[in-house]
Nucleic acid binder design. Structure first.
Lengths: 161, 161
DNA sequence: TTTTTAGTTCTGTTTTAACAGAACTAAAAA
DNA sequence: TTTTTAGTTCTGTTAAAACAGAACTAAAAA
């Protein structure tokens, strides 16, 4: 038998719990489901940055199925990852902080992806509404502009680092 | 009695309907409810850019209550507006295209508002995880940087115009 | 081989969001 | 004044999301 030290149950102080709640609500507003939001927030706030399935489960007091689903989609979307420790069967989940920059970039990209649709709209609009069409064209031009400029910004940041 | 011309029922071709659907799905992914998404998309695609309550209702085939709620929240969030025509009791709703730039700016701003929470997190984190904390600090610095640079970009655009 | 463990998947329940339809309201028109 | 119109608000229904709990699985340990 391996001597796997069972850690004492995770303790969160009230400040930490409040922050998890606030972060959770924030993420929910972006469309992320409650449990997923809480897990992600917990992994950001917790003193212990690597937590096992059961530690997360007990801390948040939700069912195994909910935790399982949350962890899996968080991994699929690259927001968390896990490591293993030799001689330990459990997986240790942790926030994928180093990837957040890329995640942010992805988020912005998908946000700007509406422009393809906008261009489709403009292409099929009647020519009887020139002013409206001009406004729409402006919006499209602005988003295109934004896309280019954001790339510049990202490069600038990477050079600073 | 006033002679208010009842317009012929709105006709949308299949291309237009498909686009409304695609735009609708896009907006739904950002957390906007289905009917609201459809109304907003309709007002972008329709040849007639100013539509009455009932025209929208008949075109989309949904209930009055759904339309009423959708229109009101779209107005609250500044995505649409309405005009009136003298001697006509109806309101004519239209996409608030000229405000979309501001809406985009607002959207980005609220997106970046997570940084306040991130700073709260960093402030209360244990000092026993220096590497993690450093990564978190980097994320925060990046978002702060992004905020400033986005302002520059918006100004740059406004000068181009 | 049997047993334990860490997590997954399935099924049913609860909760919440979204909507329909009817009753209602306020202002304008008749 | 009454009637019509344009939209709102209320109540009940439907549909979908989120979750709990138990059964299950696969790999490791005993």
């Amino acid at each position: 038998m391996r001597s796997i030290k069972t850690r004492q149950i995770m303790e969160l102080n009230q400040t930490q719990r409040n922050l998890i709640e606030k972060l959770g609500v924030f993420h929910e507003k972006t469309g992320m489901p409650p449990t997923e939001s809480r897990v992600l927030s917990l992994l950001l706030v917790s003193d212990e940055i690597e937590l096992t399935f059961d530690e997360i489960r007990e801390t948040l007091q939700v069912s195994k199925s909910a935790i399982s689903n949350a962890l899996n989609t968080l991994m699929l979307t690259n927001k968390i990852e896990y490591i293993t420790k030799s001689g330990d069967r459990k997986r240790y989940f942790r926030s994928n902080l180093s990837n957040w920059k890329k995640n942010a970039a992805d988020g912005l990209h998908s946000l700007l992806s509406i422009n393809a649709l906008m261009k489709e709209v403009l292409a099929i609009r009647t020519d009887k509404t020139p002013e409206f069409n001009k406004d729409l064209g402006d919006v499209i031009a602005f988003i295109d502009f934004l896309q280019v400029e954001l790339l510049v910004i990202f490069n600038k940041w990477n050079q600073l680092k």
